[in-house]
Amino acid sequence: MIGRLTSIAGAVFMDAVRQRVFYVVVFFGAALALAIPSLPTYGVGVAVGSYREVALALTFTGALVLTLSIAATRVPGEVDRRTVYNVLAKPVARLDYIVGTWLGVAAVSAAAITGFTAIEQLVGLIRYQEAMWQLWQGALAIWLEMGVLAAFAIAVSTLSGPVVVVVSTLTMLFIGHSRDGVLGSSPSLARSLYPSLDAFNVINPVAHGSGIGSTVVVGMLLAFTGWAGVLLILGSLGFQRRDL
């Protein structure tokens, strides 16, 4: 089973990183990283913190564009072009196909986030003479959140087309970061059941603090595993019933 998953993931990765969109996003990400220090908010005494915050936002945006563009189109595209027949007519379960596709998207996302973060760290080092290792903690949080969003997008894409997938994933992202705004910050049952993505929000400790501790990392990993697992199972159940 592992071999099948990695094969499908490898094909998704190889196919995606040879698409022009991958290089366009990475190129513009690098160009924007170089331009961060020229933003007008600099010069108020928090230049390094602001740089880290904008760098995280840039990584998040670039990763989101790439992840969504692949996750929203991969399954519908394979069904439309019927490339999925060559895979599913072999001894491959639909769950394997969905999980393998997700792993491939997560690998593309990891490659892009690694590239963004490396460039941002290099620019930060040159401009501020500071290594900014905590950017990698932010990169991990962003990658984990992209993993959840990719699982959501793939799950929706088993039943629907790319436009619906993108709109619903962005809605999910918005809702996932709106818990405090919707329910307030006091503990409640509704709050604990709210589909929150706040576990991945590490901007403050990474950009303006001294990084995140192991408790936060464990919380992120638990949230990632729970969300992605449930979404992928739902996605494969939906796909199971679908006529191809």
Binding site: G3, R4, S7, I8, G10, A11, M14, D15, R18, Q19, R81, R82, T83, Y85, N86, V87, A89, K90, P91, V92
Partner: peptide, 23 residues
């Protein structure tokens, strides 16, 4: 399948090895 299609960015060898592994 009728009118088969494949991931267009892969090579023929890569596709064959992928399907060989899946099979």
């Amino acid at each position: 399948p009728e009118q088969p299609y494949f991931p267009s960015q892969l090579t023929a060898i890569q596709v064959m090895r992928l399907y060989a592994r899946l099979a």
